[in-house]
Computed example of a mutant assay.
Amino acid sequence: MTDVPGLRVGHATLRGDGALSGVTVVLGPARGAVAGVDVRGAAPGTRETDLLHPSRMVQRVHALVLSGGSAYGLAAADGVLRGLEADGVGFGLGTPGRVVPIVPAAVVFDLGRGGEFTARPDAATGLRAYRAAAGPGGDGPVACGVVGAGTGAVVGGLKGGIGTASAVLADGATVGALVVLNAAGSSVDPETGELYGARYRLPSDAAGAAPRMPAAAELAAARAAGVLRTELDGPLRATTLAVIGTDLTLTKAQCGLLAGMGADGLARAVRPVHTMLDGDLTFALCTEARPAPELPEAHQLLATAADCVSRAIVHAALAATGVRTPAGYWPSYAEVFPSAVPGAATTGSADRPG
């Protein structure tokens, strides 16, 4: 995601003492970034997403917040507002020092996965994530796996998490995606054990070793253990979030279209998707560092953005590690299918049983 010049990412992770959750913040330039949103799931938890409609007055956002904690996690955005205000970043009101930061937010359901229902992100968690994004290293490589808003994420019966991917277009423009993989559906084909989105990976992808076809014995064991389930697991238990960024100059309407293509990328890599139990949502934003694209470049941008989301989902699955809490145990894809991920059998996880 931070391959897009001008974008920064920070995480705050809550893990231990009954918690398994966190917050991820995406920052654009101080002047703000033009943004759009596409909501496909039937159970979204959001804040200020109405401002992203092309007909609304505000033209730029100053941060995007992705949080665990379901509706309670929306409180994380308060901390991000405080951090932006302290730094003098926001919608100017004509008086020095008086600004109103515009901070859309969306949440995933991970309540109770650490063992305590009330252990969830709050404003202080959001402020920590903001400071991580705004501080040294916020424009560097993004930590993936069990971190930030992906800390408590689960996909099917496996551990989910944070994943990112990027690509450079023919004229040098950049598009990147960040995903919080936490779906009611699965990212794994139950017939083969392959990751649905694996076909979209690029040879240059460094986020995890290229997955292979899983061994038949591993597939049989996974089926017996029920970790490849695709049946729905109760109400309000999921939601996958994505953010797409580019350095091209886009309108709010074009950002909305870009977000819609991201939702298509999610649909390629998770099944079933956009269910009654998910609040699936994709943000898109642009930093305006490069000129507005002509039609051929705009077409390439949209198609590549969808691929980036699919790749980010694969990277989230490969970067995840198994987690055990009082609420249960969620193995990673690499633990269940070590033959499919070179090096997985010797890597392991601190939370792996035994």
Rank of each mutant, 00 (worst) to 15 (best):
A289V: 06
A292W: 03
P121K: 07
R82T: 11
G152T: 12
R82H: 10
V80S: 01
L266N: 05
T164D: 02
G88R: 09
A167K: 04
A123N: 04
V341L: 06
T347W: 06
E48S: 07
A224S: 13
G265Q: 10
V9E: 04
T164S: 11
G156D: 04
R82W: 03
G245F: 00
P104S: 07
G354D: 00
A345Q: 04
G197D: 05
G36D: 06
E85M: 13
A173G: 12
L232A: 10
G354C: 03
L277I: 04
G145F: 01
P338M: 07
R352K: 11
L52E: 11
G79E: 06
E218S: 01
M276S: 15
G36Y: 13
T239W: 09
V9C: 07
G322V: 11
L232I: 08
L127I: 01
L181N: 05
V34G: 08
T287I: 10
V58R: 08
G41R: 11
V146N: 09
A42V: 12
E48G: 01
A105W: 07
L7A: 10
A75I: 02
V188N: 05
R128P: 01
T239C: 09
A105K: 03
G115I: 13
S166H: 15
V108N: 01
P121F: 05
A242D: 04
V188R: 12
L277T: 07
R128M: 07
E288R: 15
D78M: 09
T95V: 15
H53L: 12
T118F: 10
L281A: 04
A316Y: 02
P54Q: 11
L195A: 11
V154G: 00
R229I: 09
T95N: 02
G140L: 06
V227H: 01
A71F: 14
G16A: 11
L158G: 07
Y196D: 02
R31Y: 02
G234A: 04
E85H: 14
S67K: 10
D278Y: 01
T240E: 06
P203R: 08
V309A: 00
A317R: 05
D17N: 12
G45H: 11
R98M: 13
V309K: 02
A153Y: 03
G114P: 00
S187Q: 02
G193S: 07
R237T: 13
N182D: 10
E294D: 14
T192L: 10
A134E: 03
L52P: 03
